[in-house]
Structures are given as C-alpha cells and as structure tokens.
Amino acid sequence: MSKHIQQIKPVLTSILLASVAVVPMASLAAVEVTPKSAPNAAVLTGSTFTPPDPSTIPNDEFGKMVQLGRNIMFESKKYAPQYVGNSLNCVNCHTDGGAMAGSAPLWGAWVSYPAYRSKNKKVNTYEDRLQGCFRYSMNGKMPPLGSDVLVALSAYSYWLAKGLPTGDTKIAGRGYPDFPAPKQAPDFVRGQAVYEANCAICHAANGEGRVVNGTVVFPPLWGAQSFNWGAGMGSIKNAAKFIFANMPYGQSYSLTPQQAWDVAYFMDGHERPQDPRWEGSVAATRAKYHDNKNSLYGTKVNGVLLGDTGAPKPFNE
C-alpha cells in the first residue's frame, strides 16, 4: 500500500511544481503523463489566475449575495432546497466551491458567457447555463431567471472572476483539462478494477457513497441520488477529464489517462435517474440527445439496457 507514496515523495515537489510553469495546456496531449500525485487540479492547466480569498467578501448587501452564492456551492440542498433533487452539492464537481482551476471554476465560466451551446441550440446567458446544472447535475428543478438563487450564484461567480478579461473563452484553467485520448477503447471490466483499487474506499463498492449522521461525506457516483442522464458528468469524456484532474480526492493526476477513461466508463455504465428530456422511449431519447460515443445511455452495458427506467420521476420539493 505504501508503494504508491514512495514514488510520490521524491518527485512531487521537484517535477510537478516545476511543471506548473513549463507545461502549457496545449502541449499536454503530447506529453506522456506518468502517474504521480499533484497538489491540485490546477497544476497541469497552466492557469496563473488567483481568485480573491473568501475572507475578503465585502460586508455589505452585495457581499451578502456573494456569500449566499458560495453557500449554495457548498451546501446546495440547504441553501437552494426547492431546486435540488439529489444528495449532491455543486462543490462535489467544482472543487473549492468553484474556485479551483481544472475543476470547471466559476470564474472561467463567468467570463465566457453569453455563448452558443449545441446542447440546447441557442445563445445561453450565464443564468441559462446555471439553470442546466440544477436540472441535470442536481436532478432538480430550474430556478427561475432572476431568482435569488441564480442572482447569488452569478454574484459569486462575478466576484471570483475579479480582474479577468471577459470574452477569453479559452482561459487557462477553464473546464477540466484536456488530456490524451485512450490508447485502448475504455473498458468496463478494467474500469471496475480501477474503481475497486482507487475509489471504493470512499464512494463505496455500490457507488452510492457514504453518509454519516445524515450528512453526505462521499457523494454517490450513480444510483437514485446522483446526477441524471442529462448531466455533463454522464459523458465519459467529461467524467474522465474530471477524474484524471481531481480524483482520487487529494491525489490529482495520480491515475494514468487510460485508468481515468476506464473508470469513467465503468461509472457512466451504471443506472441513474432518467434524462428529463425523455422522448417517450430509450431509443428515441438516445437518438435525439445521446447519439455519440461518449454516452452509454440507451446502450447495453454489462447486460443492462441503460436508461430503460421509464419516464422521469416528478420532482417533489
């Protein structure tokens, strides 16, 4: 068990910290990324932006909205209960409450909207984009435009992005960093082995995470309390990128790219709540929204036709 750590110790500070400066994002795909643990997801993104420290949130009306936005990121169900339908919190996929480069930071998003999105084939404002997170990632209900929840998240994002130029939609650190395509097609069985060795200690063998005294400690990766089939994390590619940069927790970039692809396939090869854009049948929903190689929805994995769970369950507050 300690084999892993022996490798990390000597190389960690020297090589990885040095690479912050020398590995720009564009060249990453060409570099053979060897497994070792980096301090955080920002390391391989080339990001140089530092968002302001939370202790500097102003103590006034604006600051109150910023703080509410931050609270929603960390404790979504507590601060936006009417819109959250599962046991996830935004921070689960946006490390450090949306402040961390390489973990889809809110500051990287803030300066990139309004933008055209192929997901709904129109130009989306930032609030439109936030609505999608509630509908899919949180398996909930979209907060109305102009509602306190969206105003608070916008205020927090704006505050985090202080000093960044707007319109640079490719700012370093935005989204999850690109990384090498898999050498072998992602595989369920190999993914399961990666999962058992690296993830199950926290997310549990059945993928449902762990709850202590009513609080979710390790969030569910699949099942009724996780993100639904319409969520970004349901794309194997997004999931692989997120996992490579952010998981196992505290050990960024410690998996090989192949391991990240395999375990993403394994995770996204499990059942989860129905896509709210349900077209009446799995086949029709796949044809309209999932007809690409990064979605396993509507395909048979490990003997199960994924998504074959009927119409979406109505959301109750």
């Binding site: 980096a38 301090p39 955080n40 961390m100 202590v212 005294n213 400690v217 505290g250």
Partner: peptide, 22 residues
C-alpha cells in the same frame, strides 16, 4: 475548507462532519 492551493483538502471531507470518522 482545507487549503487547496497547498493541496490540503478539508479534514472533514474525509474524516466526516465534525471529524466523527467514516
């Protein structure tokens, strides 16, 4: 909250709410 710049996640994220253990 931890200090992610230094690569230190919040203790309670792994050791449970209030550090009760998991």
């Amino acid at each position: 909250y931890g200090d992610w710049k230094a690569g230190i996640p919040a203790c309670f994220r792994c050791h449970g709410p209030g550090g009760v253990g998991v």
